[in-house]
Nucleic acid binder design. Structure first.
Lengths: 341, 341
DNA sequence: AATCGGTTTCAAACCGCTTTGGATATGGCA
DNA sequence: TGCCATATCCAAAGCGGTTTGAAACCGATT
């Protein structure tokens, strides 16, 4: 059942039927109701492809998921971010189209999405410190929102981010207050913007107490269980091992825990660990009592917010670029305690 | 730059240009090259919306991601499955459109995707034992491939699945061979088809050795760290605690490990654990030596295979429904050993 | 009765491609 | 030379909606 057929069946022109269904004022209320009823009865749903061509809008937003070519790693926070964003899209009748591309093809993917008209805007994931994508999107005029920020970019652009620097600063201060002096940072890859910011927060806190950072206590790698384990194992074997760890994610935290327990040490007593908790639905940090003390910020909420921003931007492209800085909670769990001795 | 403009610039008709670009034979080779060159030079890319309307094909496949309303849990294997499938789509110039919907809206989502013509086919995720979606998709004539199977469905349908039953049977036998007699099963939700199959494999293996299953050693819940921890904690407190666990996922396995170590027991010596490892990119089961002994099957490969199947089905709808049963490897890691005493 | 403003409806153009059904040109062959 | 098959190109008609510009209708006004 298409528009023309429905119109014929009603003895009306397609024009009128279209207008009736789309709430235009220039149609008699009685007619509108008749049309609505018929549409429902015949289960008519306008063809999305036709609407898209006619209106010139894609009614879709793109998420380009870069897959690191070397490690083929998909960012684990991605599923929850998508879940948050997806809610917003459904509510607004937008489609979400995902492009999973090797990271070196990313630029071309944006260009293609733009010129082929597949989407009205995109979400930029996992920004690096120097991120060329932002300039590119500006240049080709495709509305976008960045999940995170790119320090190296000067021109204004829309973003949603967690205050990573503050979060890690507070976490470090918390450990310092507990008497820890050898605090390790098991960070994500430091060309990623969020990782650099966390590092800055950590260094700030140390500096404020006059503590010189120890390069041997700073690791940077993909946020996997194994790399957390490896970093912790190495550091715990040092002559002056750390008494506390800051971990980039729940998953690295678990690797650290494995290393700690493997040495016969006890978490929260011998060694303290604070993680950053993205509040992933499938990876909850405990329930009533958190497993790990953590800086927590829901990535799902971030997805929701980013999507809303983007739809707003698509509707009103002239608006100044919105930004939103989310503060992380510091939640106390079972993995921290006073420094031993 | 659109087709008409390009054609004018070349002094040709849109027809010829279109044909030249799409490799139709009825165009002079010299002309074709001229067109190709001009297209490249002007960076012409045909408008996807127009192609879709003209051809009547969506050039897109849908993934409907049901979000459990109660727990709001997104399946963690989802990201890697998508990554695998996405590769295939990109290569074939298909878009991947994701609908994240509360699971009670799922049926309507399929109906809408179909009648609005957003997609040419869908992947069905996380089938339950009795799954109405399969009959529905048959009825509305939307090509699909199921990731997993639905035991309750009699008519043939296309699927890709891991041999979950065999995997868990083998894992159980392996533990039995090591002398374990009290083997616990920390399963996923048992209305999910895969969970039921795993349970069947576990029970088969026990039965074959004449061991009566102990209901106290069988848990079924979402596959989270916490629920693994809770189940293991409870079971380890039993008068005759299990000496071995089968876990539904890497994540539940980590919860079990936490419970085990919290009791001062050592994994692989006091308690053995075998997990099912989906080979998630961000959750690798160790590297050279696996952390956990595991039944392993790459969900990313499954995504790749499912996507290929679906594209095949879209191209040749009359083909009999393809199916593919993947066998899981049993890989030996550090989490298993002979039964104590 | 003619005119008028407002309401309601419609025919047709358009979005940017594909595809059908010729038309034209070319060359080989009788 | 005339005819036909083949190669090459094109005009126009879709695809299924939206949107523009105009027509029809209405009761009210003059």
């Amino acid at each position: 059942m298409n528009l023309k057929e429905l119109a014929t069946k009603l003895g009306l022109s397609p024009t009128t039927v279209s207008r009736a269904l789309n709430g235009y004022p220039e149609v008699n209320e009685a007619t509108r109701e008749r049309v609505m009823a018929a549409a429902k009865r015949h289960n008519y749903r306008p063809n999305a492809r036709a609407i898209r061509l006619a209106t010139g809008r894609a009614m879709a937003v793109g998420h380009v998921i870069p897959v690191a070519t070397r490690h083929e790693i998909v960012n684990p926070i991605f599923a929850d971010f998508i879940a948050g964003a997806g809610e917003t899209y459904s509510r607004n009748d937008y489609d979400m189209v995902l492009s999973v591309v090797p990271d070196e093809d990313e630029e071309d993917t944006y260009r293609a999405l733009r010129s082929k008209g597949n989407v009205d805007g995109v979400i930029v994931h996992a920004p690096k410190m120097e991120d060329r994508r932002i300039a590119l999107l500006h240049e080709i005029g495709l509305p976008f929102v960045v999940h995170g920020r790119a320090s190296g970019v000067t021109l204004p652009y829309p973003w949603v981010d967690v205050n990573n620097r503050r979060a890690f600063q507070r976490a470090t201060e918390f450990l310092l207050d507990l008497g820890h002096r050898h605090i390790a940072l098991v960070n994500g890859l430091e060309f990623m913007d969020f990782a650099m910011r966390r590092r800055a927060g950590y260094l700030d806190a140390l500096a404020a107490r006059g503590i010189a950072p120890d390069p041997a206590l700073m690791a940077s790698d993909e946020m996997t269980e194994v790399s957390g384990y490896r970093a912790a194992t190495r550091m715990l074997a040092l002559p002056r091992p750390p008494t506390a760890f800051l971990a980039a994610s729940m998953i690295s935290g678990m690797g650290i825990r494995r290393a700690v327990e493997e040495r016969g040490l006890k978490l929260g007593r011998d060694v303290s660990v604070i993680i950053h908790d993205d509040d992933l639905s499938y990876m909850k940090n405990g329930e009533d009592v958190p497993i790990f003390t953590a800086t927590r910020s829901s990535v799902r909420d971030a997805g929701r917010i980013a999507a809303e921003m983007l739809l707003g931007l698509i509707a009103r492209p002239q608006d100044p670029p919105p930004t939103r800085l989310l503060e992380a909670d510091l939640v106390i769990g079972q993995s921290t305690g006073p420094a031993p001795r």
